[in-house]
């Protein structure tokens, strides 16, 4: 019908399209600005547990040595207190090794630094705990 023949309509549609696109652009810009302003719970740095040879080695070394030092010191203290010469040192040295293994286990499994065997992914996200 005659509606189609009216030329201003075509122009109107074109103008509308232009208007809409600039409108969408503005919308996108506002959204981007909002996103920048309110950061979405931080950008998680990706850290794979298996990465980094010597750095990881150093970390594991420190963890094991720390556990051994603590264990041995407790053993020494107990021996000195109870006069049970080498026994508590031996026992707690072994316990210290166990604790060292636990520490390493937690690091390798990305369970973070927490004490306690917690199931992977039971709480939070292990990914951010794999830092040096």
């Amino acid at each position: 019908m005659p509606e189609e023949d009216i030329t201003p309509k075509a122009q109107g549609a074109e103008g509308e399209a232009a208007q809409r696109s600039s409108d969408d652009d503005l919308d996108a810009r506002i959204r981007a600005a909002s996103a920048k302003h309110i950061p979405e719970s931080a950008s998680k740095e990706a850290g794979s547990p298996s990465s980094g040879g010597i750095g990881m080695g150093f970390r594991i070394g420190v963890e094991v040595v720390s556990a051994l030092v603590v264990g041995t010191l407790i053993g020494l203290a107990l021996d000195r207190w109870l006069g049970t010469a080498p026994w508590f040192v031996i026992l707690f040295f072994l316990m210290g090794s166990g604790a060292g293994v636990m520490n390493v286990y937690r690091i390798v499994n990305g369970l973070g630094y927490s004490v306690g065997l917690r199931a992977s992914g039971s709480k939070g996200d292990g990914s951010d705990e794999n830092k040096m």
Binding site: G47, S48, G52, G53, I54, M56, F58, K131
Partner: peptide, 10 residues
């Protein structure tokens, strides 16, 4: 970050 961290300890 981790990658860099580790490399730096060498």
């Amino acid at each position: 970050m981790t990658e860099h961290l580790k490399a730096f300890f060498r």
